[in-house]
Design a protein around this nucleic acid. Sequence first.
DNA 1: GTTTGATTTTCGAACGATCGTTCGAACCCT
DNA 2: AGGGTTCGAACGATCGTTCGAAAATCAAAC
Lengths: 197, 197
Amino acid sequence: MRPYDERLEHLLAQAAKVFAEAGYHSTSMRDLAAASGMSLAGMYYYVRSKEDLLALIQERCFTAVFDGARSALDGHSDPQDRLEAFIRHHVTFFTAHMSEMKVLSHESSVLSGDLRRKVNHIKRRYVDLLETLLKDAAPDERPVDRSAAAYALFGMMNWIYNWYDPAGEIDPERLAGLIARIFLGGFVEARSTVHGG
Amino acid sequence: MRPYDERLEHLLAQAAKVFAEAGYHSTSMRDLAAASGMSLAGMYYYVRSKEDLLALIQERCFTAVFDGARSALDGHSDPQDRLEAFIRHHVTFFTAHMSEMKVLSHESSVLSGDLRRKVNHIKRRYVDLLETLLKDAAPDERPVDRSAAAYALFGMMNWIYNWYDPAGEIDPERLAGLIARIFLGGFVEARSTVHGG
DNA sequence: GTTTGATTTTCGAACGATCGTTCGAACCCT
DNA sequence: AGGGTTCGAACGATCGTTCGAAAATCAAAC
């Protein structure tokens, strides 16, 4: 059963790459066959449909980023440190898995039915995780502002696929630090440091 | 010639709405015909192709947001005020023209050839405008950080279409103020106020 | 105010192309 | 020999676009 899993992983990885470059809808199953080295019909031995293929990519990627975030929080007890650890993990994970994360961010409204419900469930938990961190780090903010701030932060982080060049001047760690600085400095510390102390 | 222009505007507005809801690639010309009240063939009297239709929407919207930004800067001379005015204008414009701005943000890689070049030219000028504002507001930052910060800001602002509900609790002005606060507080004031004063 | 003719605008019908998916036979490995 | 794996070929559906003719609009002539 090992070669089966390897072939599936290979297919998902190549598909994520092509989806990221050309977009889900303008990528044909024939394109994926060419990119993965399989035949058109052969892919259907590993995957139920094109939509199922996308769901598998999104589901695995979202689970990985969620689990990674939880373990990245280990060892941090200060609310602000935990929030910064979350941001740094998300950004570095994003830059390290650009194709999958672009597919996750950019094709989030494609799925329907049960596949959509399954992915949305992980997304919900991930958003809830950030909202909890925000509640601890900025307890005095109004809930509606905290919620909007969470999405603003996700915007900064998930927009990366639109412009970031891994071969460019700024490395992932520095980018993560910059985004953490902007958000913590602008949303968290602005209250607790400037106004409160 | 007036009825012609009105019909074209109507088509573009309806198309933007459908593109925003379903995405460019999964919207058929037949869908647009149904939404605009025209016949399938009738639309081609106003538009050369489906891609031309998308380009018209993006071009008009980008020009509007660019011109609006320039005039929003009038009357502000302080660099920080100018940056805040830019942010407030972008966010309020975005929430007021959600469909067109979503199409602009989400379908930015669809066009090709001359159509793509034309839209990218306006985009370049708009990004340059923000980078200039940033240079004045945060002159001590390293250019690579300033550039990344500009994209982080665009991320916060352009991600709006993924979550913002105009009928929800937070109104556009408050959202604009929140994003301005996060960015100015985290990127600009963190240097000039905390470190410098 | 009606008729006429030219121009603008609309659209039913059809084209070729491409899409996701399926089927059954062939292949490979043990 | 037998089950896991591959794939050529074809299916029906839908896509963007085109064409030629009908319909609507308008201006000038009577």
